[in-house]
Structure formats: structure tokens, C-alpha cells
Simulated assay, not measured.
Amino acid sequence: MKLDYLQALKRVNEARGAWVLHGQEPLLEQNLLDAFRQSWLINHVERERYDIQSVADWKNVFNALNSLSLFSQNLAIEVHGNIKPDTNALKLLKHYIQHNEHNLLLIIMPKQDSSSLKSAFFQIIEANGVVVPLTATYAQDRQRILSIEADKIGIQLSQDAWQWLEVHHEHNLLAAKNSLMRLADTFPDVQHLEMQHLLECLQDQSRYTTFDLSDALISGNLSQAIKIYQYLVEAGEPHSLVLWTVSKEMRLLMQLFEQPQNALQLGIWKTKVSLYQQALRRLNPKQFLTWPQLLLRIDAAIKGKNIENPEHLIQQAIAELCGKTLFA
């Protein structure tokens, strides 16, 4: 069968037979291995590790699985490598799966391509054991995983903060976890963290941040907004993070136009409600109809899906937020 990371975590204590973990997310691999090793320690399961350097090494693995020390009832063999068993070793694998219900063969491999996943080895494991892809493809999956990490250290993040954290780390789960730990250390007395906490803690101590860009956009200060944007680009901030900032402000203004009495419910800070209201009076609501398409064009340009220059498009969006136009 195939399980995702979170499903696998729940079944660690009952794992028997043959399991394969494969992927390129070090946080997920590290967490699962830690969970397995802790379970083995608590349940007095003997553990051995093998690093596969050649096909011949698989024979040693299966010899070990078929023998227990005098002091153990269960055995867990942890195998690391990217060399799959050959035909003879596959026979040993089948024999082990059919005749050994108490031990565990845990195989940790790097990310596998589609052809490898169709090989006889993976077909045998998936039909008789468990395959766990160490991936988190969707944003909601990454947030669920990181929420568990946040719970471990006793903090919670607002939705805006989660989105900013993901963009800031460009989907790197291990880096995001490290940032959560840094946040907990920086604000030990704060349990519910907002985006401003992340900006204070995680942004480099540079002259400008995306928080400054937001202030310039809502104030309608085009020259300052362009100046901050250019500084961020030169400082190495990814275009995706700048796009997130611009998109957030456009979204808030469009929502506030539709729901003028719900500023606080929309997530606008009480001290900044008047600034957003002034921005609405400065802007022509007809502009709002073009913003979603502009944001899609910027996103496509950043990802290389069109031939437009993302910097030019971002500057166009900045100008529109400030109530100006760069192009007729």
C-alpha cells in the first residue's frame, strides 16, 4: 500500500514486514526515522543498520532478518542506499515477506523517478508492504506538517504568517521548521504569532523589508515603494515574496471595498484601518477588475511561463496600488 507522511507517522508502532521511504524532504525523513527509533527503543526491538554499496550487500540484509539474537524477539533492519535488489535478492525479499511477520525491513532511499517506481522491487513492496513518498506537494499539506512542528514547541501562527513563512522559505520544510524554533526563542512569552513577529525575527537586519513595502503601497507613495522594491531585489528577496506582498494588499483593498464595515474581520490592523480607507478613496474601483489578471501574469512571468519581464509587471502593480499608471 502507499501512505503519505502523516499517515505513516500514525502507523509507526504497528509497522512490520517491508517499508520503503523515498523522497527529498529531509525534515520528513528525519521525523519518521526518529519516530521509528523511539518506538523500537520503547518496545525493546533490536535495531541494525546497513548501508547498501552494492547488490551483494542485500544478501547480508536478508541473512540478518532471518536471525535473531538470544535477547530479542523482534528485529528492525534499517537500510540506506539507492541500489535496488537484483533478481536473486528479490526472491529473498519475497521469502522474507511471506514467512516473517514480526520483523521490520525499513528501507530509506532518495527520491525515485517514475520508471524506478514501476520496477519489480517497488511493485513487490507496494503489493505486500508500505511505500511512503517523502513529499508535501500542496500548500495545505506543508502547513499541516509544520503545524505539528509548531505544536511541539507551543506556538501558533496566523494564516497570513503561515503564508508568509512558506513564501519566505520557498517550500523548504526543514528551513521553515528552523524558523519556527527561532520564533519560539525570540518571543518566548507569545503563543499566537502574527506576520509582524515573523518580519521582525526572520527578515535580515536590512534597510527595508516587505513590511515597509506594504506601508508605502497603502500610503500611495510610489517613489518610496519603487525604491523599497528595488532594494529588496538587490538584497536577494525572491520575486515570489514581493508578489505575495502586492497580492495581499490588492486582495485586502478589494475585500474592503465590498465589505467596508468589516476591516478588522478582514485582518487589517486597527491602527491601519484609516490608511486603507484613504487608499480606497484614492483609487478607482474600476481598476480592481484588472488586478486579478495582472497578478496571474506576474506569477506566470516569475515561473517562466510567459515571456514578460516580472520586474516590469511588479512595478506596474506597485504603481496601480499607489493610484498611478506606468503605461497608457
Rank of each mutant, 00 (worst) to 15 (best):
E311T: 13
L326Q: 12
L289C: 04
D299E: 11
L289E: 12
R251K: 11
L280C: 04
K248N: 14
E249P: 08
N262L: 15
M250E: 08
Q316R: 13
M254K: 07
P292L: 03
T325C: 04
K324F: 10
P310A: 06
A300C: 07
E320I: 07
A317K: 03
L280R: 11
I298N: 09
H312N: 15
Q265D: 07
P310R: 08
K286F: 01
A279L: 10
R251F: 07
E311P: 03
S247P: 06
Q259A: 09
K324H: 11
K324G: 02
R282I: 00
P310F: 06
P260H: 03
N262K: 15
G323T: 01
Q261T: 09
I307N: 10
G267F: 01
H312A: 12
Q287N: 12
F327G: 01
Q316L: 15
I318F: 03
Q316I: 05
M254T: 06
A300L: 08
L321Q: 09
K324T: 03
I307Q: 11
K272I: 07
R281M: 14
A301W: 08
L296E: 03
K286T: 15
R282N: 07
I302R: 12
L252W: 06
F257D: 11
F288E: 14
R297P: 00
T271D: 14
I307D: 11
N309K: 03
I318S: 13
L253P: 01
K270N: 01
L253R: 02
K248Y: 06
Q259P: 02
L283H: 02
A263H: 01
L326N: 14
I302W: 02
L253D: 00
K248T: 07
L280T: 07
L294R: 03
Q316S: 06
R297C: 05
V273I: 14
W291V: 13
V273G: 09
L283P: 00
E308L: 13
L294G: 09
N262W: 07
G304T: 11
G323L: 05
E258P: 00
F288D: 07
S247C: 10
Q277M: 09
E308I: 03
L321R: 04
A301N: 04
Q265L: 08
L321H: 06
Q261Y: 07
R282Y: 05
N306S: 13
P260N: 04
L313Q: 02
T325P: 03
I298E: 04
K272Y: 13
P292Y: 00
L280E: 08
L296Y: 11
E320M: 14
S274K: 12
F288T: 15
T271Y: 14
T290D: 13
H312W: 04
L280D: 01
K305I: 06
L294M: 12
I298F: 07
E311W: 02
H312V: 09
Q315C: 12
P310V: 08
